[in-house]
Computed example of a mutant assay.
Amino acid sequence: MSGWLTFAGVFALFFATHSIPVRPPVKKRLVRHLGAKGFTTAYSALSLCILALLIWAAGQAPFVLLWAEAAWHRPAILVGMLAACLILAASIGQPNPFSFGGRDNDAFDPTDCGIIGYMRHPLLSVLALWALLHVLANGDLAHVLLFGTLGLFAYVGPRIIDARNRRDMGAEAWEALVGETRRQRRIRVPSPAMMLRLGAGVILYLVLVFLHPVVIGVPVLS
């Protein structure tokens, strides 16, 4: 029982740290004291620490098996995680007025928006894909609750952000910007800068594969 209580307590802490700091009045106060970059750095570090604590807490909960790993799970997870790393590398730090994680959003060009034309919230798409793949890989109750909730969080988040941006930007301006990015969807030869980003995504993927058994204790290639 204590394992479930620990798990529930850390989950409550997770939602508190991911809802309170981004409320407009609270966020404005924090940004005023920390600066925009300081807030982003502190919030990212806090999120990673709480996520690590949450994964640890799931491991402390009683083991209740819901399904066993199937032969196709591992290949699907490896391919899916490579896609997640490439999306992350292509989008992180790029101007993106639609979602969080953007940088220099005033410089956003809807006629040359890259991956933003296909997904307005690429970081949340990465989180959703990561969570779904880990639900597949971990068929016990605690980890299904963990990764399933994170996946739901990533699914609902874009709708909340879109509603807020639509209100703040004005419905007409928001829809015009969305429409312009959608019209730019086309297959293009990646620029040298994007090739570097994708290469970094591949390196990140290899690092994760190498470190997974060291940090998490579970090999991904066996």
Rank of each mutant, 00 (worst) to 15 (best):
Q60I: 02
T41F: 10
N138F: 14
L127T: 01
N138E: 07
T40S: 12
I187W: 14
W4V: 15
G201N: 11
S191K: 02
W72A: 14
G179E: 06
I160K: 13
H18A: 04
A84G: 12
P219W: 02
V126G: 00
F15H: 14
P122E: 07
P158Y: 03
L196D: 04
G199F: 13
L208D: 02
R29Q: 15
F11P: 04
R188E: 14
R182P: 01
A154R: 00
H121D: 01
E180T: 06
L51R: 07
P62L: 15
G201V: 09
H33L: 15
A12N: 07
D104T: 05
M119P: 03
F153T: 12
F153R: 01
Y155L: 10
V178E: 08
T41M: 09
G114E: 09
A173W: 04
L124Y: 11
P213C: 14
C49H: 08
R167I: 09
A84C: 14
R166T: 01
R103F: 10
A163N: 12
L124D: 00
W130F: 15
P110L: 14
F63C: 07
L136I: 02
I87T: 15
V156G: 06
W4D: 12
G157S: 14
D106I: 09
R29T: 15
F98I: 05
A16F: 14
H143A: 04
D104Y: 11
Y155A: 12
A176T: 13
G170W: 11
H18N: 08
F39N: 04
A8P: 05
S47I: 10
C85Q: 07
Y155N: 03
L78S: 10
L53D: 07
A12S: 13
G139D: 05
H73P: 06
L196Q: 10
A76F: 10
A154P: 05
P62E: 13
L86T: 11
L141E: 06
F147V: 08
F11Q: 11
L82E: 07
H33M: 10
G139H: 04
L65W: 09
P158S: 02
M81T: 03
R185Y: 10
V202F: 01
F39T: 06
L51C: 08
W130A: 02
G201L: 14
A58F: 09
I116D: 12
S222L: 12
A142R: 06
I115N: 03
V207L: 09
D162K: 00
G9C: 12
L86H: 04
S91F: 09
A83D: 10
R182F: 04
P158N: 01
D112R: 08
N138W: 11
L204D: 10
A142Q: 07
V178Q: 13
L46N: 12
Q184C: 01
I216N: 03
R120H: 12
A58W: 06
R74A: 09
V10Y: 08
L127F: 02
P95V: 12
I20L: 10
E69T: 13
E172M: 00
M194K: 01
L132I: 15
V220C: 00
